[in-house]
């Protein structure tokens, strides 16, 4: 379990997806843990991943603080809605939704993303909220700005609901919103996602703590594994072949999601 958590932290930090997307299937399908305990443990892992990774990404100049905080409004409100819905929804339905989200995440991870920087004029909202910045590249600092802010904000709200509902950081949707809709550089999207998922997860964690989902015995090995994994993942961001990682990650997600559906519906 420790090794799995270490891997989750590493992958979560590197891809901006948070460790939860690995932790929940790992605990439910490999260790047979009840999904509610698994969600509680995964929230812990997501917060640990986010804190450890974001600390490094801020220092390196990748994560955009203002953008992250603005989008947190959407994810926070979404997470509250999601966490409130979670207790009204059956476990089988929850498992099915999670499986679909995993498959969709796997699909998204394979989508090519353009890194082209255009010189369009700034949109009014972007200017007002100062949603632009620079990030380090081999050619020095590269400047960028956010586009389609309202649409990105809307997609972030959905990401928030999913993370409250399923205990995963739903980083895939956040990266999608920033990368595809708001047209930010890929590394800015993943690192800013890492930065924001901690707050989203903290919102859900408060609710789940009160409901008794967060178990110390289960969360302990998860957290102790995720933490060093996330540090290593954040340090490795510059030097890892993300293309290879993406393929591995997608395959893992597809396998895990099928296994989860089988576990939930196989006995019927």
């Amino acid at each position: 379990m420790w090794a799995g958590s270490f891997l989750a932290g590493f992958l979560g930090a590197l891809t901006g997806l948070g460790g939860g997307v690995v932790i929940v299937p790992l605990l439910t399908s490999v260790f047979g843990v009840d999904i509610r305990y698994a969600i509680g443990a995964s929230l812990v892992s997501v917060i640990a991943t986010s804190c450890a990774a974001a600390s490094t990404y801020i220092r390196q100049g990748y994560a955009n603080l203002r953008l992250g905080m603005f989008l947190e409004v959407a994810t926070t409100i979404g997470a509250i809605v999601g966490a409130l819905l979670a207790t009204m929804i059956s476990i089988k339905l929850l498992t099915l939704v999670l499986a679909i989200v995993l498959l969709y995440s796997a699909y998204l991870a394979q989508q090519p993303r353009s890194e082209v920087l255009t010189d369009d004029a700034e949109e009014a909202l972007t200017q007002q909220l100062q949603l632009h910045g620079t990030y380090p590249t081999p050619d020095g600092l590269m400047s960028y700005q956010a586009y389609s802010v309202p649409l990105g904000f809307g997609l972030m709200s959905i990401a928030g609901v999913l993370s409250g509902l399923l205990g995963i950081g739903s980083g895939a949707l956040k990266v999608l919103a920033m990368d595809q809709v708001m047209r930010l550089p890929f590394k800015v999207s993943t690192t800013t996602s890492s930065f924001t998922i901690g707050v989203t997860a903290a919102v859900s964690a408060g609710v789940y703590l009160a409901r008794g989902y967060i178990d110390p015995g289960l969360s302990m090995p998860v957290m102790l594994g995720v933490f060093p994994g996330a540090w290593l993942g954040a340090k490795a961001l510059m030097g890892t072949k993300v293309s290879v990682l993406r393929v591995v990650f997608s395959v893992v997600l597809v396998v895990m999601s099928f296994k989860m559906v089988y576990n939930a519906f196989g006995e019927m």
């Binding site: 203002r66 905080m69 603005f70 947190e72 409004v73 926070t76 409100i77 997470a79 509250i80 966490a83 909220l129 707050v199 903290a202 919102v203 859900s204 408060g206 609710v207 703590l209 009160a210 409901r211």
Partner: peptide, 19 residues
Amino acid sequence: YVVITGLVISGLLYSLLGA
């Protein structure tokens, strides 16, 4: 950004205390 972070804080407080 005072408004933005303020909204996030109220969301956090709502969920952490409201429970």
